[in-house]
Design a protein around this nucleic acid. Structure first.
Lengths: 224, 224, 224, 224
DNA sequence: AATGAATGAGCCTTCATTCAT
DNA sequence: GATGAATGAAGGCTCATTCAT
């Protein structure tokens, strides 16, 4: 639909100060997180980026394409910044690897400053999936989940059926996602409110790891 | 509880078979679940309800007020249909009460037929909270969560600090919510896809209850 | 368009307490004066009258017909309450008759309480004439103006051409109308603001009569 | 003086012959005069201006803001085109200055061609004042009225109290405004109808000036 | 490479009016 | 004699998008 297209989306960093394109991407990230795909208007994005209304269409062709680009780059950045192996060697003790996984998952969405909105963005995408979700699952979530399955499998031993392993992995993931998926509820329940602060992230991580570790104790005497 | 509404809503059967107001409520529920508050147009709602556009204004005054009403009634219905005590007496064994709680939570969002969209509605509200969430938390979620806290407290014993109880309760809840909050991801992960079917709900419920029960085993020798 | 119609509009006073019809008429008068024909909604009128929305259409067939009815009755009442002859015999001195005329004109629009809105109603009708104006001019204004023409003619004598008499009469009328036609301006000019109070009406009347009387002094020495 | 407007309005000639903004302003002036603020729809204005509906929003942000702009520009233009000093030096004879004032006031509302609707616009604003009237009185009417007060004061002499001067000035103004405030009545009274024609403006001006001059004759022997 | 002007589609809401009771 | 429910026709406004420069 557009005739020509500027720098190929992810590759080369713009030459001058920061580049309209990059500023648009950043502004769009914040606004999409705040107000959602529909709620964030192209005008507002352009304004926050200090660019013209037409700039969005010029650089991304489309509002929805800008959205996909935002999701991709923000998600990619989150993955890179908080790898689920936590920097551990592949042969580290399984307990440590589980803890690292949990910690990374929580950190991604609850990090301070810049990546603060990545969690909200993700939550919105779950509630109202767009074309972006396919890419995200395929490129990011699926591989991570495979890694978690391996950890859980190692904890449960080879005799446990695959379905049980999958359910257990889901249990681990869910405990992490909860804290930003259900954030509005967390904020309104007195018992949970204290844990909203970024400082509480470590406490949550420790709890989730311990809770899961206890539940995943390899069944000794009895067979499942 | 409703502030002001023209028709009497419950008493005399209106001119049509079911009453325009009720049909609007149902149609709005479906469409809000499908497309969200913004995405569902008043026109589409009215059309699906077989009513005039102005009917929404006449009966609810406002699109947003219709939305609140939908949330309230759908949520209230879900609460009533699947009580978290599962019909158990208050002195039933704590294990059974935990299982009943989990089962009810899962059933609400994954129930077949009519309330099929209540889960999506809830998930959307979490991702993009509106005025409705205050009412919902206050009237529905908070009391339920208190009940869960009591169950968990009973399992962990009186020595465990309140924060630990809260975190544990969050772990239980999160494992239930996961299945419809993260539905789009579940649907795209081969290992989890089988559990999407309504028939799998019972298996999930059993897993969550067991997983949590194991994690919540009262610490014997060592203190936490 | 309507099949049957209630009491014939102006004749018999309603039998019971006050009658929906009469209450509608009063409420409509106030609201039309406050907000204009377009600005006053049928719903607001019915509400203020303590009647049903459909009552307006039932009793008057039409919003515009209600408006005409309001204009007619309110204008008729104003005419009756403040006759321009001021109760003077037809052979009273011309100076007194002029003064009485001016006083009546001013009183109609600046009376306290109930008829307070008749002036606004009239002003609105001038600015945005409807079908009602024809009746009003024919039945009320034209005869009054004829009377004024006679007074002016008596003052100026028979030699002055008819056009000059008409212009002079216009000058007299205009000085009265000014005070409520230009009310918003009067209210904003410091020099005129004091005259807004109802108590100032008499001072204005005296001034207008004197000013006009001086201007209308029959030319003595020189011919016009 | 204008707060914020996209196009540069005065500098470079826009893409069309006259500029969408200017055409909108003109079309809106006509339609507001014909049908009032409420009666003139944005759609009709845009259509008459040969522009899109959204153009109003783009250039003026709002229907009401467009209205204010119309009032401001049309009123400003009227002031500029017919200055109340009529080009006379400040030390011209007071009689001439009074005549010039009257003539200007009448010309503004009864001028031929372009500003033909300014009178009606003003009359409407009086009958149903909007936010625009504050600006108009402050910036245009008040200064003019001060000038008239000075003229009248000069005619009456220094002994006459300020209230009397104010009333006399009101009498002068009212005789001018009458001809377009009460236009619908003028058109329906046979004696006044001839004066509707633009050609009669000069005759009216002469009459008003003479009538007022006679009334304002400085009291000789007796004190007022 | 980027922009200001302009557009068309669509949305929510309001309102006078009618219909069945 | 009077009413609550329901309707159709706009109306103002917003928004993503395009066009000419």
């Amino acid at each position: 639909m557009r005739s020509k297209r500027p720098p190929s989306a992810v590759s080369a960093p713009p030459t001058h100060d920061e580049g309209t394109r990059a500023r648009l991407l950043a502004a769009a990230g914040e606004l999409f997180a705040e107000r959602g795909l529909r709620g964030a208007t192209v005008r507002a994005i352009a304004e926050r980026a200090g660019a013209n209304v037409a700039a969005v269409n010029y650089h991304f062709g489309d509002k929805s394409r800008l959205y996909v680009e935002v999701m991709r780059s923000s998600f990619g950045e989150a993955l890179a910044r908080h790898p689920t192996d936590g920097g551990l060697p592949a042969d580290a003790p399984v307990d440590e690897r589980l803890r690292a996984f949990v910690r990374a998952l929580l950190a991604r969405a609850r990090g301070v400053g810049r990546p603060a909105w990545q969690g909200r963005l993700m939550a919105r995408e779950m509630a109202d999936p767009s074309a972006a979700i396919d890419v995200m699952v395929r490129e990011g979530i699926a591989p991570e989940f495979e890694r978690l399955l391996a950890i859980v499998r190692e904890l449960l031993g080879p005799r446990v059926p695959a379905e049980a392993v999958a359910l257990a992995a889901a249990s681990v993931v869910s405990q992490c996602l909860f804290w930003f998926f259900a954030e509005p509820v967390v904020a309104r329940l007195p018992a949970l409110k204290p844990f909203r602060e970024a400082a509480a992230t470590e406490a949550i991580a420790r709890h989730v790891a311990e809770f899961s570790r206890a539940a995943l104790a390899r069944p000794k005497g009895r067979r499942r």
